[in-house]
Design a protein around this nucleic acid. Structure first.
Lengths: 254, 254
DNA sequence: GAGTGGTCTAGACCACGGT
DNA sequence: CCGTGGTCTAGACCACTCA
């Protein structure tokens, strides 16, 4: 039986089977594949619930539940009366979706990303572990400044697997507008969907203090981020140093 | 018509009405009331979906959708085959639900809360604003240490509205086991459901450095938290100073 | 076995966006 | 007007828990 697209009948996935999962989750997985294989691209509409129900041989309600979960995970965006769309970092509302830094004086203007350096290297011990690549595998490293209202607030050092981000250069960075992730998505087909941040307090070293315009030794937030794409594959490791004189890191707990 | 319990028929809540909301959301609100009024208490089971469907005069599916949302917000916990329960900070898995600090060496032992001080005062400017009370209103202030594996890592200063936490003393604190929030829930009937944290990097002052056993001037995380109970009422304001020598603040972004 | 939540279906109607 | 997602219903069957 062809299980590549049509969902295998429940009989094949019943509790006896160790790989059992409910129908809506099997459908969700097939839809994740469609995203990962770029059958459905960021910003585009996916087929209607009716069409998907036919394609997956299930009821509309079941497809709906799969879409619900994916919408809750910010993978899809529903628009009543229009359709369901693949989420995109180009969407103005998602431009700096992972940035939690907020100005003390509620100045909502978007920050500006200023590339400083970009070079190729071989993955060291830590980078290899974080990115899940071999020791010595090619990586691209870039440094950039984040400015709020023209003033530098964050300096980032970003490690990317060279395989995936082949052709990333200063020219490309300087020609880009918007966030890095929208560039990654448009130009390299890599969509960031989830991240983990590990935060510490550190003292500014000489170089950093100059870049951020603060005194040497000033306490800064050290924010290490590992970012994942579909299938929980890590595709970015970065370390940011945040000046919190006029900004704070805002986190909602629930 | 009596709208106090039975859901008003849809006719009364149709789009023409400015207060329109779908039936499952009206039901959700009624269920929130049941939580807020302590009709259903933390740790206890709420009525079955069938019973609720009868009570609210809706189908099981609609009640289900209301419960789904509340479960997603960590207000309720579903247990297949048993029932749906009101979430509780006494639940071992939720004991330090809002604490994001993690040891570098994955030591999963729960931290220990050590009360230092507890006194009454009048709300100053900032406390009044954060807690949404009048300037000069009674507040209870407490300071405590959080220890991981016996070593102090966090020092907290916590502001509570005196009205709500009447009778909170050092004796009560010392007699408590588990987290502060489980004490607040059991003893004062206040359930914390959501919080916002604002994080900065600061240098340890003299007193703090001694409490945490670090050098004066060491960079620390300053974590200001406002915590809300049902109806988005702020009921706690605290400032924590976190030593990040052997721990980090972990945040999942999605 | 009785009762609970979990999944799946089929069909009705509504609200919204575009033609 | 049509097609989209959003809500609501009624009923069937499954999986889990406990007495």
């Amino acid at each position: 039986m062809d299980c590549s697209e049509k969902v295998c009948f429940n009989m094949l996935m019943r509790p006896e089977s160790p790989t059992f999962s409910p129908l809506y989750r099997q459908i969700k997985n097939l839809m994740l594949n469609a995203l990962e294989s770029a059958e459905w691209r960021p910003g585009q509409a996916i087929p209607s619930e009716q069409e998907l129900a036919l394609r997956f041989n299930a009821s509309q309600g079941t497809v709906r539940k799969a879409i619900d979960e994916m919408a809750a995970e910010n993978l899809l965006v529903r628009k009543q009366g229009k359709g369901t769309y693949v989420a995109s970092h180009n969407d103005p509302r998602a431009l700096f979706r992972f940035l939690r830094l907020v100005p003390v004086d509620g100045d909502l203007a978007h920050p500006q990303s200023v590339p400083l350096d970009c070079w190729k290297a071989k993955a060291g011990n830590e980078a290899a572990r974080m990115l899940g690549v071999e020791l010595g595998a090619p990586v691209t490293i870039l440094r950039r400044l984040l400015k709020f209202a023209g003033r530098p607030v964050v300096i980032d050092e970003i490690y990317l697997p060279g395989e995936i981000f082949h052709g990333l250069t200063m020219e490309v960075l300087q020609g880009a507008h918007g966030s890095l992730y929208s560039l990654f998505e448009s130009r390299f087909g890599v969509r960031m969907i989830r991240a983990e941040e590990r935060i510490r307090a550190v003292a500014a070293d000489r170089m950093t203090s100059e870049s951020l315009g603060v005194a040497e030794g000033t306490p800064l937030l050290s924010v290490e981020r590992v970012t994942y794409t579909y299938g929980d594959r890590p595709v970015e490791w970065r370390r940011g140093l945040y000046s919190t004189a006029e900004h704070y890191y805002l986190n909602e707990l629930s």
